[in-house]
């Protein structure tokens, strides 16, 4: 059987990309190995661990549970687009650093993308709400406590920065 190939045009972190890929290529593989945006990590490829979370048109999704071809015409945001071009970290990244919210750092990009969208929609969450929002992202190192603390602080910082 001839490989079933399709053209995919996407915008990732504001940059336009065009590639032709096989229809079965997962979005996670597309981002990592076609676009070489390897900051999005892959942990399970069955939609449980959350490491591959990216934003599709602003909403967090599992990039291992979507085909690259399905992203055609859509806008994606990944970890690489979070900090400013100047290198200045986003408040959510700063809070993770300040509160030791990461150890091996492998789950971190997925957690940041999930929580970015969450904090935008819920600017003043309770601890329990943060934990619920976080529950689709597995972390094996931190026991979550420092991530939760970081998110509560990040929420505050993001509230303060919104005019």
């Amino acid at each position: 059987m001839q490989p079933d190939r399709h053209e995919v045009q996407v915008s990732v972190n504001g940059s336009a990309y065009r590639r032709e890929v096989e229809s079965r290529m997962l979005l996670s593989d597309f981002l990592r190995h076609e676009l070489l945006l390897a900051g999005t990590h892959v942990g399970c490829e069955h939609g449980v661990c959350g490491a591959c979370t990216v934003l599709l048109d602003g909403e967090p999704i599992r990039s291992c549970l979507m085909l690259a071809v399905q992203a055609n015409g859509h806008e994606l945001s990944t970890i690489e687009g979070l900090a400013q071009d100047t290198g200045e970290l986003h408040p959510i990244q700063q809070a993770m650093h300040a509160h030791h919210g990461l150890q091996c750092g492998y789950c971190t990009p997925g957690i940041l993308m999930t929580m970015m969208a969450f904090l935008r929609e819920n600017p003043a969450p309770s601890e329990q709400e943060v934990r619920e929002a976080l529950s689709g992202n597995l972390c094996r190192c931190t026991g979550y406590q420092n991530i939760v603390d970081a998110m509560l602080v990040a929420a505050k910082a993001m509230r303060a920065s919104v005019p």
């Binding site: 939609g47 999704i61 999930t114 929002a133």
Partner: peptide, 12 residues
Amino acid sequence: LPHIAHPQIRNR
């Protein structure tokens, strides 16, 4: 609805 998987799954 809150019992159905996690936010990322519920988005799709």
